[in-house]
């Protein structure tokens, strides 16, 4: 993707976060999960949040999704409060685990959000077919989750998140539990999906190659308190494959991210 600001489809701001803090009150002492976060995400961006565990990257994603309330600061999602955005079903959320309902078959799992959005049975069927084909799972409609591999389950989960055509896709380490081979393949698939659907994607990861390969914008975070160290924009071609991992540009960006993480680590300790 070319630079977000110069891209035609990416002019409007999708997510705007200013001076956001979040403190968890615990019995012993308050935990500063997020501290003074400022971040603008344009629509059509693929943004990765990367950092060590405990840096608040998942918490930040949950704040965007209105699954967590900030203590102070402002945040707008698609021009609305996160709460309104959630009520409008503005995002599809992909969790660390596939989170499929074990008593529903694959097709029926994809119908779940559609049922709640009030789609007709006919439309549900049409959309589940459309999105299952997008993640290459046609033929598995009637299978149950336990009959699929972990990678396939996570693809179902992505199809489900896209099925009701939300503006954004929020992904919380979706490939963290998968083996590296599956993970590489799903990374390429996800890149193509992003390209096809033009969604805004916010992607939490702790893998540098994954973040650099997928993102148009990489947000490097550090822990205790969780804050943003650096925002790195990338400029790889849209139809890239994993071959670019050998190119000097890729290694250069990876190095930048690694330095950012190291800097955050030194600050923290």
């Amino acid at each position: 993707m070319s630079e977000p600001t110069s891209s035609k489809s990416s002019k409007s701001t999708s997510i705007d976060i200013n001076n956001l803090c979040l403190t968890f009150e615990t019995q012993t002492e308050p935990v500063h999960a997020l501290s003074d976060i400022n971040l603008q995400i344009n629509s059509g961006d693929f943004v990765s949040l990367i950092g060590p565990s405990g840096c608040g990257k998942t918490t930040l994603l949950r704040v965007i999704a209105d699954l967590e309330k900030p203590t102070s600061g402002t945040i707008t999602v698609e021009g609305k409060s996160p709460h309104e955005a959630r009520l409008d079903r503005s995002y599809g959320y992909v969790f660390q685990t596939p989170a499929l309902l074990p008593w529903r078959n694959i097709e029926s799992n994809i119908h779940l959000p559609l049922e709640m959005s009030g789609y007709s049975k006919h439309e549900q069927k049409k959309l589940s077919q459309q999105y299952l084909s997008l993640v290459s799972l046609i033929g598995f409609e009637k299978k149950y989750p336990w009959q699929l591999s972990g990678g396939m389950q996570q693809r179902v989960s992505i199809a489900r998140a896209l099925s009701f055509n939300p503006d954004m896709l929020l992904m919380d380490e979706p490939f963290g539990a998968l083996d590296e081979i599956t993970r590489d393949r799903l990374n390429e698939e996800l890149l193509h999906l992003w390209e096809k659907t033009q969604k805004t994607v916010v992607f939490v990861t702790h893998s540098i190659p994954e973040a650099v390969f997928l993102s148009s914008k990489i947000v490097v975070m550090s822990a205790r308190p969780g804050k943003i160290i650096n925002v790195i924009e990338t400029n790889f071609s849209k139809d890239r494959t994993f071959d670019i991992r050998e190119t000097p540009e890729f290694l250069e960006v990876s190095q930048l991210v690694r330095e950012g993480l190291k800097e955050g680590h030194n600050d923290g300790s």
């Binding site: 999704a65 699954l67 409008d88 079903r89 959320y93 969790f95 685990t97 989170a99 779940l112 959005s117």
Partner: peptide
Amino acid sequence: ILVDLMHSYSASKAQ
């Protein structure tokens, strides 16, 4: 996670 999933769809209590 499943409760959060339903929440993310802004599911009603009945749903």
